[in-house]
Design a protein around this nucleic acid. Structure first.
Lengths: 342, 342
DNA sequence: CGATTTATTGCAATCGATTGCTGATGCCGG
DNA sequence: CCGGCATCAGCAATCGATTGCAATAAATCG
């Protein structure tokens, strides 16, 4: 174990190594890149020397020269929901899959949690010259900013809706209207007639889910549209918020469609506190199918979004776009997962 | 709205801008940096020109020159628990706070999810020249790798235990032995005598928690040490694993200490399935105090780690170390949060 | 054996921003 | 009217790796 003591001159640059090997920096560069232009012997010798001195080329320099950063930006825009924390399980699950896939493909992941107060928040990110492409987890209420940038910056892919009026930016997502419809139909099948929708509508995905619930009600010939109740994702206020909502409209509703599983879990909690039994007294349907949906008591019936596949589609689309090809939006079908809460 | 059409020559470099402004690149650089060495007028003129052409200096070049990247690496080592997904709520909660704090201080966050198969996984990261410092979320079973690097690379701070034999690396964490003791004492107070510890021991934090439980039992004069049952964090197998454990030792135990809230939630789920009532038939104590602990039914009694504070301490320590100062390890006291599950 | 490939390596420019130093200008007091 | 000083701008080197092109040596062929 002599690792700790490389006594004096640490090998920091390719030039240091070149001096040691008695060759020119250029040769070292080529040798380390494994190019065939250098003699196999010298290449091996240099590589051995490199590992011996645990030399690692400076990425900044390399990236400056090659104009390729090997970094993908993953951005979470919190336009509405400023208080929402990055620990939102949906974001995180998505982020986990993205990280897995990007790592596999040799990319690094730069994470930005942005509160879009300046209008050029996205420009700042894409023009920093720091990343080869950008993934947006959610569109929030920033449709116009995203459009503006997407028009000139190709390697940009968002998670969310792809059928918004005038949209040109590439988005991967599930059909939220269909998903809302599934939730609504399930609740109706369970006997619900007056459905509350817990979630706030500034993000297009959520708005579409609510719309889907409304469609289901209309199709079933039920006159009452869903009662929409703003519910914010900041975990510290969500419980009180839901409690207040139920206090207010409690008697008027007989079914709950939650905009996400996180909301559904909290709703279960609030209902349990008031002795309202799920699904018997009040069926509840979630959205997303996160791991918590299975751990909850009762297990949550929910509309599944295939997040793993979504992450893969996003990365694939991004890589195509980085390579200069085109990549269209993708709409995946949601699936109703029938469990115990409705 | 003429934003879309800067017809021909986009202003990409500081030299472009200099030409436009009729000054030298050096002056532009100083002007954009807001230095006082340039005339106030020219400075304003240049800055105006810069915004007009929405010019953003190339970060790669800047960082290469200044040797300061403005990036902090956040690394999640998955040494044991290869199957553990990045979406583990503890990691994510921590990551969220770290992201908030780092963003506030103008740093970018580069996320790496590492499976340490090569022994030099950490060297690869710190020597890449890509970041000013590195935060490790958890030590996993990589004590030696971390020590080796920490001995020569100062701006490195880990979350975890700081009292491991021979440890020199800076770690921020809670007193896991004390935490385990709190959990054990609570269970004992609830009448438990034969306690199961759900969690696997390769990570030092977890090992210490189990040890704390053992201490509590010993102190109370109970002869039976905790029955330790490996429980892995991969969400898809955890439930079956716990179910199998309970199947096997079910009758022999009368209290459960879970190594984390995630495990506790799943345990609740499994117990509910078999009609075992919590806390009446089987008290359960969690660890961490994540948001899910409050949403669970029943609400989980758990040992709280102040993750927000932990994240802050980590970042503060890291900044001190980046600045060349020293920063010692920090041990925070855990707190028992009494709720309904025990 | 001389001419021409071929295999390696070196040289030097380049990526784009930053910054120490020098030079030019203008203002001041003596 | 001149030396001295402050202010401002430009020049050119620098960060460290990469790469097109030139140069050298060795090998091949007629």
């Amino acid at each position: 174990m002599d690792e700790q003591a490389h006594p004096i001159p640490r090998v920091r640059t390719i030039a240091d190594l070149a001096r040691l090997a008695g060759v020119s920096p250029g040769t070292v560069s080529r040798a380390l890149a494994g190019k065939s232009l250098v003699n196999a012997e010298t290449r091996d010798r240099i590589q051995a020397l490199a590992t011996e001195h645990s030399f690692r080329p400076n990425q900044m320099a390399s990236r400056l020269r090659t104009q390729r950063t090997g970094v993908v930006g993953v951005v979470v825009p919190l336009g509405h929901e400023r208080r929402q924390h990055l620990s939102d399980p949906f974001f995180m699950t998505m982020l986990g899959f993205l990280a897995d896939r990007l790592t596999e493909d040799g990319y690094d992941l730069m994470l930005s949690r942005v509160i879009p107060d300046a209008t050029d928040w996205l420009e700042r990110i894409v023009d920093s010259g720091m990343m080869d492409g950008v993934l947006l987890i959610g569109q929030s209420d920033q449709f116009h900013s995203i459009e503006r940038v997407a028009r000139r910056y190709r390697p940009l892919v968002a998670w969310g809706s792809s059928n918004l009026p005038g949209q040109v930016h590439c988005a991967i997502g599930t059909d939220n209207i269909a998903g809302g419809r599934l939730a609504g139909e399930r609740l109706i099948a369970r006997g619900a007639r007056r459905i509350a929708f817990l979630g706030e509508l500034r993000a297009p995905e959520i708005r579409q889910r609510c719309e889907g619930v409304a469609q289901a009600l209309a199709t079933a010939g039920i006159a009452h549209p869903p009662i929409q109740l703003d519910t914010h994702l900041a975990s510290d206020v969500m419980e009180q918020e839901i409690a207040a909502h139920l206090e207010r409209v409690g008697g008027d509703i007989d079914g709950i469609a939650a905009a996400s599983d996180v909301i559904a879990v909290t709703t279960l909690r609030v209902l349990a506190d008031r002795g309202i039994r799920v699904p018997h007294d009040m069926p509840v349907v979630g959205y997303d199918d996160l791991p918590i949906a299975v751990s909850a008591v009762p297990r949550i019936t929910t509309v599944r979004q295939d997040i793993a596949r979504g992450a893969n589609e996003m990365v694939s689309a991004l890589f195509r776009r980085i390579a200069g090809e085109d990549a269209p939006s993708v709409v995946m079908p949601p699936i109703l997962v029938e469990r115990d809460s409705a």
